[in-house]
Design a protein around this nucleic acid. Structure first.
Length: 493
RNA sequence: GCCCCCAUCGUCUAGAGGCCUAGGACGCCACCCUUUCAAGGUGGAGAUCAGGGGUUCGAAUCCCCUUGGGGGCACCA
């Protein structure tokens, strides 16, 4: 990394368990992971669960599971099973660090860098409305900042509870963002923001600073939506007497309309992609290239290869649209690159139990080149496990007919096939033999092979599109082929 | 409204002053292969580098302005 820091590289991901693992969080985590692996640094996982109202343990589990699934392993973080934390800077769950936050709030209070605010939500709301009416920026006036001792006591005896606000120094803040370059803000434009709520819960901008400092984070790499939080946090670092880390704000992932990627417009849950059968290596590869490129024409990279090439300084400034077509393409590429056993293993969760492991391996060659997502195996191969009646329920006379033909041509093709299948014993019932026989029959009948094949494809699978016919027949077996051809013939009566 | 950020084919991007009459990939369109669908192969359309000013012998690349887009302005993270 060219931005040399005297300290060792320590980066972190800090997801909040208020929802499923988001694609954007996954990509930011990936970038942090890649920086750590590229530099030999340390990757820390910290759970930001201070918002008890929205937080949820199930989400925490889901996020951790999703991160594992993607292969983003961390060096320090909370123990998953609820046991001890891993690493010297724990606990790594903010809900377990409350005493530290309280102590730091006290320090700030004592130093006069923070003060108690007794304003009620109604009062604040009224203040905001007035400001808006005057077309001013909505921000806290700071009136509790200069409360006298008597006024404070009056509020206390009145029974009012207080929040703690940070007295923002009205100065310009300049920092060199690793990705964006020099960025300037004027903190004089900011109101004093709350760092500890009335109910005692500390807030994000405050705890993130304390923890990043306590955990010796050297590079804070996060989403662009945090860019405007940075000057507030820098002011906090300084008031608290901490070293200010380096910041890098990665561009947003966008909906097709170029707004920030959101659930309403794009699927944002990593688990949803997993459920559809996207491979983690494909998703990682795809995400890595959303806002970064190694500058080569090569585009398929494993996590290790990405780690060796990744440079945070080369991450783009502009947002990138999430292009589902490209993800599909990459996924297909990864699926096709898998060996029989590997692909069978990945397919296992998508295929019913009646299809045993050995049968999945036999199925793999039929579907490999046709799968975009693993879940597509159902559409492609369900005829193998569907009862004959279900397949037959899809028959229609027009579907059964060969191109340009009618029921008569369909019946001819079907009955000829029935004869051939019937005279083959189980031992000879292979794709090769079937293909030879069928082609010979087509020649004998004086029809195009395709016209003999199509009615049988529909009869056997209930679909006009299927994996190669003869290999499908082999997997189906002689008896089921006969039964289905008979059903189709009956449909034509 | 205020603050901040951004800007190369529809999309992801290469490009760090001359190698650019802008390269690759996805998607799209043809054709080839082919029992359907895919996969694969070949070819094609597609970006006056948002617009306008500079700087320079020379700008997609540097500077300024405009326009457009986005993000943020919580007792959420």
């Amino acid at each position: 990394m060219t931005t040399t820091s005297p300290k060792a590289v320590r980066v972190r991901m800090a997801p909040s368990p208020t929802g499923p693992l988001h694609i954007g969080t996954a990509r930011t985590s990936l970038y942090n992971f890649l920086v750590a692996r590229h530099t030999g640094g340390t990757f820390v996982l910290r759970i930001e669960d201070t918002d008890v109202a929205r937080g949820n343990e199930a989400y925490e589990r889901e996020i951790i599971e999703g991160l594992h699934w993607l292969g983003l392993s961390w060096d320090e973080g909370p123990q998953v099973a609820g046991g001890d934390d891993i690493g010297p800077f724990g606990p790594y769950r903010q809900s377990q660090r409350m005493d530290r936050y309280a102590a730091e709030a006290e320090r700030l209070l004592a130093a006069g860098s923070a003060y108690r605010c007794y304003c009620t939500p109604d009062e604040l709301e009224a203040e905001r409305r007035e400001q808006q009416a005057r077309r001013e920026a909505p921000r806290y006036s700071g009136r509790c900042r200069k409360l006298s001792e008597e006024e404070r006591e009056a509020f206390e005896t009145e029974g009012r509870t207080s929040a703690i606000r940070f007295a923002v120094p009205p100065e310009k803040v300049v920092f060199d963002d690793i990705i964006r370059g020099r960025v300037e803000f004027d903190n004089a434009l900011l109101g004093d923001f709350v760092i500890v709520r009335t109910d005692g819960m500390p807030l994000y901008n405050f705890v993130a600073v304390i923890d990043d400092a306590a955990m010796a984070i050297s590079h804070v790499l996060r989403g662009e939506e945090h860019l405007s939080n940075t000057p507030k946090q820098i002011a906090l670092y300084e008031a608290l007497g901490y070293d200010v880390p380096l910041f890098g704000h990665v561009p947003l992932i966008l909906n097709p309309d170029r707004s920030k990627m959101s659930k309403r417009k794009t699927q944002t849950a990593v688990s949803a992609y997993r459920g559809l059968g996207y491979l983690p290596e494909a998703l990682v590869n795809f995400l890595a290239f959303l806002g970064w490129s190694p500058g080569t024409e090569e585009e398929i990279f494993s996590l290790d290869e990405l780690a060796s090439r990744f440079e945070i300084e080369k991450v783009h400034k502009a947002g990138a649209v999430f292009d589902a077509d490209r993800l599909d393409y990459l996924n297909g590429t990864y699926v096709r690159s898998l060996g029989d056993e590997q692909l069978a293993l990945r397919l296992r969760p998508f295929v019913p139990a009646v299809i045993d492991d050995a049968a999945i391996i036999r199925l793999v060659p039929l579907v490999r080149e046709r799968l975009v997502r693993l879940a597509d195996v159902v559409e492609l191969a369900s005829f193998l496990w569907e009862p004959d009646a279900v397949v037959a329920s899809r028959y229609e006379a027009e579907l059964l007919a060969p191109k340009g033909g009618g029921p008569a041509e369909a019946a001819l093709a079907l009955s000829r096939a029935r004869e051939m299948v019937a005279e083959l014993d189980a031992a000879d019932f292979s794709a090769d033999v079937l293909e030879d026989r069928f082609r010979a029959a087509a020649a004998e009948l004086g029809i195009k092979p395709a016209d003999l094949f199509k009615p049988n494809r529909v009869a056997l699978t209930g679909r006009t599109v299927s994996p190669p016919l003869f290999a499908s027949m082999e997997l189906l077996g002689r008896d089921r082929c006969l039964a289905r051809i008979d059903e189709a013939l009956a449909k034509l009566q």
